[in-house]
Design a protein around this nucleic acid. Sequence first.
DNA 1: ATGTGC
Length: 488
Amino acid sequence: MTTYDANGVTLERVREYVWEIPQDGDMRTPARVLASESLLDEISEDKTLEQLTNTTHLPGITDYAICMPDGHQGYGFPVGGVGAMDAENGCISPGAVGYDINCGVRMMTTNLTYDDVRGRERELVDSLFANVPSGLGGGGIVEAGIDTVDEILARGVDWALENGYAVQDDLRHCEDEGVREEADPAMISQKAKDRGKNQIGSLGSGNHFLEVQRVTDVFDDEVGAAFGLTADQIVVLIHCGSRGLGHQTCNDYLRKIEQHHQGLLAQLPDKELAAAPAGSQLAEEYYAAMNAAINFAWVNRQLIMHRTREVFERVFDRSWEDMEMDLLYDVAHNIAKRETHTVGADETERELYVHRKGATRAFPAGHPEVPAAYRDVGQPVIIPGSMGAGSYVLRGGAASMDLTFGSTAHGAGRLMSRTQAKNEYWGGDVQDELAADHQIYVKAQSGATVAEEAPGVYKDVDEVVRVSDALGIGDRVARTFPVCTIKG
DNA sequence: ATGTGC
């Protein structure tokens, strides 16, 4: 048997790109890493594998804990991790969702081509930067009171539709149609709402961005056509989450769960994995709060897209409908959801809390939750790369339900810490280099953020996507390359 | 990720 030794953790090769950490000691299941050897070399360098093994101690974890090819160390649970816990006898864990609840990406297509934008990148990037709030502070697109926040938390993109910030197709082309019905705004603290009320429609900081891109490759013509993607086309990618509201919510429930479920916590190898037993009051409350924060993040991305349409209207002097600025799809990559999956050798149906932290839902063709427009080809999956590397559109692959609870990777995945990145790079140099070498125009609130997000601090997104495609969990459809970017 | 810290 082929094995891989990563500082004391031995992985057994199940087959190409599938590695297993066998069940041992108090582990409830084995763990699996989906990666090529070169990605495994990178994944082995931080605490990812130790954290992944720790997650198999969580009650009700089913089949195995999974690390995606872009996995790296996170708070308790690896980023790029998938854990499916039994919804009756298992648990739900805020650390397995992530601090930025419903961090995610949406891609908007257009009928513009690269030639339409060439030479006007500066004008476009300046106008986007001036009109889309970014960075820490700076307010949001909608300044609202707590009543409005409550409505957004309860209704998601449906609120945006009613208030003129969305059209019906925007909802159809969003995971869960832009609303989690099980949301309860009463489960979100006043403090979280206060933090959120001035951030409705804002990018935030860190790896969040808005990028105008051009399609460089369409690998699958049939699926590309179904998604409305053609070579040289201009598209817009928006990557952000639930801002301070989601962060505060994660923090609030971590503290509550640590206090109320100390017995369970004592059984876990890492305090950061604090979990509420399925069926407990806190499990229900966290789930209702998380769903509300998910709705908030969807409205956030919707408002940014709405504002982007307005900016394009001014810059190109045409209506957004005329430029066919339609939402291709919006996918979350930091969520948990109650889903029914067929598990085990006896193929029983089980209700599970599927935690996807830095992992994207990737449902295959025919799945009832794939929007009608894409049902014959599979759910669109959007994988943002780093600033200099472009991004990918995939479609949910035929093997995803068997291998990964219907999931794939979410991005390139960090290679080094933010602090390390700031020692290696200087923001201004990174911007100059991107402009000189690739005609990519980056405008950011903070030079430090640019340094933290320099292309060199990320893994190779091509390799991440190659593994996803080879495993059949998310198949390559198209690749894009940046034209101009705004950041926090 | 984050008014970047019990």
